[in-house]
Computed example of a mutant assay.
Amino acid sequence: DLLSGVETGKYDVAINHMAMTAELEDRFDFSEPYHQKPALAIPFQKGNPAFKTSLNGALKRVKDDGRLKALAQKWLKVQ
């Protein structure tokens, strides 16, 4: 299970169309959403603000250069 792997430190993040829910927000910190409806974000272990800053910076770069939009169109069928 991806999320238990993140909790135990086996994985740094879980990227698998994770919706931010109240239950998950109790267990994980999240990146900024990479998709708005539903709000999809990348969960990672709580308590690492430097990692969150780095992850959000990477997401901003792929948003700004169009790669995120292309991936969303391909995999999420977003127009």
Rank of each mutant, 00 (worst) to 15 (best):
A14F: 09
P33T: 02
R67L: 09
V6D: 07
L55I: 08
V13I: 04
F28H: 02
T21F: 13
D12I: 13
E7A: 10
Q45H: 15
L71D: 00
K10H: 14
R67K: 14
K69N: 09
E32Q: 05
G5T: 04
M18A: 13
D1W: 10
V13P: 05
H35A: 12
M18N: 07
Y34M: 02
E25N: 06
Y34I: 02
E25F: 10
E25H: 04
A41L: 03
L2Y: 13
G66H: 06
D29V: 05
D29R: 03
N16H: 09
L40I: 10
L24T: 03
D1T: 15
I42W: 01
P43L: 03
L3E: 04
G57M: 13
F28D: 01
G9P: 09
A14H: 03
H35V: 04
D26Q: 11
A22C: 13
S31D: 04
R27V: 12
V62A: 08
Y34G: 03
T8F: 14
Q73P: 01
S4K: 13
A70F: 00
G66T: 04
V62K: 02
L2G: 06
Q79P: 06
A22N: 15
E32W: 01
K63C: 08
V78R: 02
D29K: 09
N16Y: 07
E32G: 04
G5K: 10
G9Q: 15
R27W: 07
K77Q: 15
A14Y: 07
Q79T: 06
M20Q: 08
M18P: 02
Q36P: 01
N56P: 13
A39I: 00
N48E: 12
A58L: 12
S4E: 12
H35C: 01
G57P: 11
K63N: 06
F44W: 03
G57F: 07
L2T: 11
D1S: 15
L2N: 09
S31A: 05
Y11F: 14
E7F: 07
D65L: 09
H17P: 05
D65C: 10
K46R: 15
V6G: 00
K63H: 12
S31V: 00
K74I: 04
S54L: 11
N48S: 14
T8L: 14
P43R: 00
I15V: 12
L68P: 02
K60H: 14
D64I: 02
D64W: 11
A39F: 00
D12N: 14
D29P: 00
D1Y: 11
S54T: 15
N16F: 12
T8A: 15
G66W: 02
